[in-house]
């Protein structure tokens, strides 16, 4: 009704919404996240370019953990279930999500993929996203962390060219490091780029082929599993309560000397801090935000 004279004409109303356009996706993602947390499953969104080595990384993870954990995966691709079949062969129960022309996974696709898939019994659930350094970064899937695989063959300036993807990464895995002797690639330049797009750069250099660096990656997974609200691992695995030490150390190291390639050291440190079973509660992690001021925490020599 027109408010000026009540003539019955319709009126123009500006409705303030101020809501995320992807609020619908975010709701489904929150639902997924609750499910994963309740079941004590560490769900990770694995992103990276096509050919960055995401599938090889997961195969190598199965080898490196040697059956200690129940791993599972869904693999997103425009076509074929090749990745899911490769992972099955590596001992990782997997399901393909074929997106057709879709350039990314969204929370709904992941949710639907869980139906008929025995994900609740898993320790770590990998969501292998569509190979793409752009679109997947925009969609929350309900993961506990974003892991970006960046291969050394992709060029030193990839972080600066795709800041959104790296800004959202909780961990960057620098893959195919066994190829470094054959390439004119300066790892320091890649790390410098990451520090300019990631406020909390965390990087592990590895090679799925030789296994170098895999121990640090498995250590990161262990720490993340210990941080789960109802992690199954806390009572079973002795490594599970290393999280605070590992993180403190890693951040300290980064702030102190300005480099970001300290993970193998961080992992060694973590192994030096095993505690008797039962002491987990004292080391429970407080939440996702674990910033550490320079100068606090532990001192370490390398």
């Amino acid at each position: 009704m027109c408010t000026t004279c009540g003539c019955g004409d319709s009126s123009l109303v500006p409705v303030d919404v101020h809501e995320k356009i992807l609020a619908g996706n975010d709701r489904v993602a929150a639902h997924n996240r609750e499910h994963f947390a309740a079941a004590g499953v560490l769900a990770l969104n694995i992103m990276g370019s096509p050919g960055a080595g995401k599938t090889a990384l997961l195969e190598a993870t199965a080898r490196a953990t040697g059956g200690r954990w129940r791993l599972g995966a869904v693999s997103g691709d425009l076509a074929t279930d090749n990745d899911a079949r490769r992972l099955e062969k590596a001992g990782i129960p997997s399901k393909a999500i074929t997106t057709g022309q879709g350039c990314h996974l969204d929370a709904e696709l992941v949710h639907n993929s869980l139906h008929g898939f025995a994900w609740k019994d898993l320790d770590v659930f990998f969501i292998e996203n569509v190979g793409n350094l752009v679109c997947p970064a925009v969609y929350d899937l309900g993961q506990a962390a974003n892991v970006v695989a960046l291969s050394v063959t992709e060029g030193e300036d990839k972080p600066l060219k795709y800041p959104v993807m790296f800004k959202g990464a909780d961990l960057v895995l620098l893959t195919k490091c066994d190829l470094l002797p054959h390439l004119d690639v300066d790892v320091a330049t890649i790390l410098d780029g990451l520090r300019r797009v990631m406020p909390r750069p965390e990087v592990i250099e590895l090679s799925a082929r030789t296994g170098a660096g895999m121990e640090a990656w498995v250590g990161w997974l262990e720490a993340r599993r210990a941080g789960l609200p109802r992690g199954k691992g806390t009572a079973v695995h002795v490594h599970s309560h290393e999280h605070p030490h590992l993180h403190t150390h890693v951040h300290e190291h980064r702030h102190a000397d300005g480099t970001v390639h300290a993970h193998p050291h961080g992992h060694e440190h973590a192994h030096g801090h095993l505690h008797a079973p039962g002491s987990e509660e004292n080391h429970a992690h407080g939440g996702a935000d674990h910033a550490h001021a320079t100068g606090s925490g532990h001192e370490h020599g390398h």
Binding site: K20, V164, R195, T294
Partner: peptide, 28 residues
């Protein structure tokens, strides 16, 4: 580099800079 040179803290991004928001809909 996204670390404060004075405090050593990780930088924080300005509000809305990583969001896509529907602000207003004008309807009849």
């Amino acid at each position: 580099v996204l670390t404060c040179p004075a405090c050593g803290l990780p930088a924080r991004l300005s509000a809305g800079a990583d969001e896509i928001l529907l602000e207003t809909v004008e309807m009849e």
